[in-house]
Design a protein around this nucleic acid. Sequence first.
RNA 1: GGAGAGGUGGCAGAGUGGUCGAAUGCGUCGGUCUCGAAAACCGAUAUACCAGCAAUGGUAUCGAGGGUUCGAAUCCCUCCCUCUCCGCCA
Length: 431
Amino acid sequence: MLDAGFIRENADAVRTNCTNRGVSPDPVDRVISSDTKRKELAQKRSDTAAKKNEISKKFPTAKTPEEKQALKAQATAIDAEVTAIDAELKAVECELLAALVLIPNMTHPDAPVGNDAAANKVVAQFGEARKFDFAPKDHVALCESLDLADFEAGTKVAGQKFYFLKNEAALLEVALVQYALQTCVKRGYTPIITPDLARTEVLEGIGFMPRDPNPDTRQVYTVADTDLCLIATAEITLGGMHRDRIFDETELPKRYVGLSHCFRTEAGAAGRDTRGLYRVHQFTKVEMFAFCTPEHSEAIHQEIRALEEDIFKGLGLTFHVIDTCTGDLGGPAYRKYDLEAWMPGRGDGGDWGEITSTSNCTDFQARRLGIRYKGKAFKGTRFAHTLNGTAVACTRALVAILENYQQADGTVVIPEVLRPWVGTDVIRPKK
RNA sequence: GGAGAGGUGGCAGAGUGGUCGAAUGCGUCGGUCUCGAAAACCGAUAUACCAGCAAUGGUAUCGAGGGUUCGAAUCCCUCCCUCUCCGCCA
């Protein structure tokens, strides 16, 4: 979330930003009025408590019972005041927070302004869409003919949009994980395997809304009788890892590459991309995450983007990079690049499909999570910047690989970098 | 899951109702000494918010939340976490 003081001082810019991002600017005024009230009450509370402390301090020197009685009476009167102020203060703080969480992060000045995907800007492309001299199959057909996935069993066991990966597809997932982890580790990222569950407050700190009362928009699964959620991305656990931490600036930047399963309800996505592996309730993902000082976040964002590009160049896939427009940024991102791979089986005659996403969240997440740093050049602490980026989302990568590497005879070639882990060059029909 | 012990500043560790935001040691930073360094010595060293140009002052924080009390690190309750032992288990 943004700082209430910042919102007050930059109200117009924040309102414009809300509008650009396709959310209502109304909470801005609510933040300002709640924050003003909060400040007044906090000052009153502080003054009142000071009075009370004065009285308490006189007690040890009070000689007679009458004196003590008199002090007690004063103290009791002040107690009533404090109780009343506290109740008001609590209510105001709730209002403030409720309004604050509705305001998205500010936006990088170069990010394209627009309401929907049409405004996204393609900033780079690697490779050309493959021309087929046969009719290419989509990944669902390939999974069927090569016995790579069992969607029916997935449905039987866990429901719609769950799946079993089989044979080379199972090995491919492990290979993709290995390949992505190794690539990131070589670039200095610390490998991490994170929990697949996290506390509600951690999800909220990252910018998810697990308590969203509207089941049509709630994105995450919650675990009954606990305050835990299944994570939608390792961004949640990696960001939460250093919650309430004060770094020394010499410890930053910290770069992690985490492996986790991801769980998404995909509420509101009914009817879109329902076939196959493209949009599923559970998948495996290797995710990069960085904590850094504000001076470094732009450079690290570019670094993560370049690393994503290298990973997918290494896989031999055709993809382009999108500078995401304001309307598509979500809440926490200051700027976001998506990699979209060419997927020959998608849509009518192929289409681009998102395979990674990297965001610079500046201090938006850090403020809520209490992630700060100390430096020599300034007093006190400052909020760190956080960044995240997909190294490999297994199911999306699998879709791209199967559809792009298919051959006229129905087999699929394995990308060279994955062969050591898959143990074969080509996926053939099973006997 | 059961039993016991415990959670205090960067770390270690004292503190069982007021003079405690908190002894002491270590660490870190600054200084003295030194050609330089080490050692020694001196000093500084939590976080947030509010007021103030600042010095400074106020408030809150000793795992979290509630309670008792004029007053809580200290007493009571609930929760969370850690450690030890037992059980169970990949």
